[in-house]
Design a protein around this nucleic acid. Sequence first.
DNA 1: CGGCGTTCTTAACAGTGTCAAGATTACGGT
DNA 2: ACCGTAATCTTGACACTGTTAAGAACGCCG
Lengths: 171, 171
Amino acid sequence: MLLEREGPAGVSLRAVARQAGVSQAAPYAHFVGKRELMSAIAAVGFSRLREMLAPLASDPARSIGDLGVTYIEFAKANPGLYTLMFGSREHIDSGDVHLSQASRQAFELLAMKAGRKGPNAVDDPGPIAAWSLVHGLVMLLMNEKIPAGINERLPEILRLLEPGIAEHTRA
Amino acid sequence: MLLEREGPAGVSLRAVARQAGVSQAAPYAHFVGKRELMSAIAAVGFSRLREMLAPLASDPARSIGDLGVTYIEFAKANPGLYTLMFGSREHIDSGDVHLSQASRQAFELLAMKAGRKGPNAVDDPGPIAAWSLVHGLVMLLMNEKIPAGINERLPEILRLLEPGIAEHTRA
DNA sequence: CGGCGTTCTTAACAGTGTCAAGATTACGGT
DNA sequence: ACCGTAATCTTGACACTGTTAAGAACGCCG
C-alpha cells in the first residue's frame, strides 16, 4: 500500500485517484476532504488492531505483557497506518465519530486486563499507564529515539508495570 | 511562534521567509532543505527540555515522578515543538547528528533517575520504560485519545512504574 | 419516459518545496 | 586600497499539492 511506502504525509489524494484509475477530483464524490479519507483509514486501523487483540484479551491465561507484545507487533507490521492512527492531528480529524469510537473500543480491551473492574474504566490509572507505556515504546522505536536492539527485552520492559498495577488494584 | 499556532505541517519555508522579511528561496542559503531546518528546531527543543530537567535530575530529593511531571509540563507548554521533536519522521531527519545527540543527552537525564548505575544505560529497561510511559502519556493526551481530565492523576499514574523499577534494580 | 442523485471529468486557483541564474554584499589577504 | 571569493539574497520557473466550479455520463425509481 501507498501508506506504508511513503507514510501518512506521502499519501496524496491525487495519487490515490491515479491508483484507482480515476481522475484527481473523483475522491471528492466520496469524501468531503483529505482529512475525512484519512480518518476513515485510521478507523479501520483501529478495528484491525482490536481484532488482533480481542482473543488475547478474553483469554485469562494471557497477561498484559502478552497484549503489549501483540500490540507492538501490529505497529511494526503497519508503521504507516499506526503513525496515521496516533500521530499527526494534521492528517486526521480527532472529532470524527467513527474514529473516536473505534479507538475507544480498542482501548477497552486493554482496560479489561489492566484495570479495576467495573464501568468507567476511562479514568482508571492502570489501563492508561499500560496503553501509554506500550504506545510510547512504539513511538520511540519508530522514530529511532531508542535503539532497535531492545526488541527481545520488550516483555521484560512491559512487565515493569505489573507490580505497580497489582498494588493499585489491591487498594 | 508559527510552529505553535499551526503545528509542524503548518510551517512552510515560504512563510518563515516572509516572516523574516526575506524572499522565498533565501532559506536555502542556510539550510539544505526544509527537513534540515526542522531538524535544527527540534534539536534546540531537546536542549530546552534538557535544561528544564537537569536541576531535577541532579537533586536526590526528586523522584522519577517529579521528572515526569516536569516533562509533561514542557510538552503541554510547547505542543507544536514537542510534536515536531517526536512525531513525524516526515518533517525531521532522524539521522541528523545534532538532533540525535541532543535527544540522547535528554534521555540520559532520565536514565540517571530510573536506571541501574554505570555506563551503557541505553539498553537498561528502567529508563526506557520511564521515558516510554511519559512520552506515551503526552502523545495520547495531545491526540485526545484519553480524556484531558486525568491531569491531576498524572503523578499517580507515573508512580505505577516505581515498584517495578525498584524490583528490577535490586536484581 | 422523465427526473434526480451519484459518480465522474476537465479546468482552474492558490499554495507548496526546490532549483537555477544572477545580483548584491561582506570580508580577508596581498 | 583593492580584488577575489564566499555568503547571502532575489527573481523566475518547475512539478506537485488540496480544493472548488461547471458540467457530462450513468443508473435508478416513480
